[in-house]
Design a protein around this nucleic acid. Structure first.
Lengths: 128, 128
DNA sequence: TAAGTTCGATTACGCTTGTAATCATTAACT
DNA sequence: AGTTAATGATTACAAGCGTAATCGAACTTA
């Protein structure tokens, strides 16, 4: 079975975030960096790291008695898969209803709209 | 505590889908309709209904010895909240990176793009 | 009226998740 | 060398989840 990115839990994802920012890195460092925003106990983070290793989402190399951890897939690949999965489950695979909800709830800003416009322009150029 | 839409599980969501299609409706009906697509045991569906009631996501009225169930919030409210939550966790609250991933993976089609364009047009009209 | 059927309510059970604590080993300090 | 500190491995434990089975009351049917 391939590393199924889909069954990464939310807490595990936060640990991955830290690894995507920088790696390879020791547990120690990860804990320090995570604790800037999350009040997680050292032991908790280590458990999460272990689970990520077991799920083949994270690898490590020994550096003396420490391990240096690295993510085994790209952030973008994970977030894209998660987005698609949600959009399939709730919007029949189409992204526009999601964006429509965003617009309705005032969660769009000028910047986002500009970004969307250039995505669309580009898409249209690529499709004849 | 308000009905927290956020802690509806995936299986529970499928039951809600059925209720959004039509309600109020008896467990019996729900089971039949769900079984068109999911191989779920009758008992399983009833457990899910019970959990949804406990989570205040679903209500019921007695009709003789049966219950007739109804959802307690709109599909759109739930899907919007779920979308936002994912987009906050993975894209800092901005929707365009999600759409960018979609574009990159060829998950956009003409229809979707047209829909996005009119959303944008509308947004721009509303924002001077 | 006794037996089967149909509901909802309650209980079950293994797996995952959040959140750690304990154990064992190794490195460092006294 | 003996003690302490750091680090990964193992174990813990309650809540949530998927997936049902069992219980008890009511309704139907023979």
């Amino acid at each position: 079975m391939k590393p199924q990115m889909s069954d990464i839990s939310k807490a595990e994802f936060e640990v991955l975030e830290s690894l995507w920012q920088q790696h390879p890195v020791a547990a120690n460092e990860i804990i320090l960096r995570l604790n800037e925003t999350k009040p997680w106990h050292e032991k908790t983070v280590k458990t999460l790291l272990n689970r990520l290793v077991k799920k083949q989402a994270v690898s490590f190399v020994k550096e003396q008695r420490r391990y240096l951890y690295s993510p085994l897939f790209e952030r973008e690949d994970y977030t894209n898969e998660a987005s698609q999965s949600l959009i399939e489950r709730m919007f029949s695979g189409r992204v526009s209803p999601l964006v429509a909800g965003f617009a309705k709830n005032k969660n769009l800003n000028k910047e986002d709209v500009e970004a969307l416009k250039s995505l669309i322009d580009q898409w249209e150029q690529e499709h004849e």
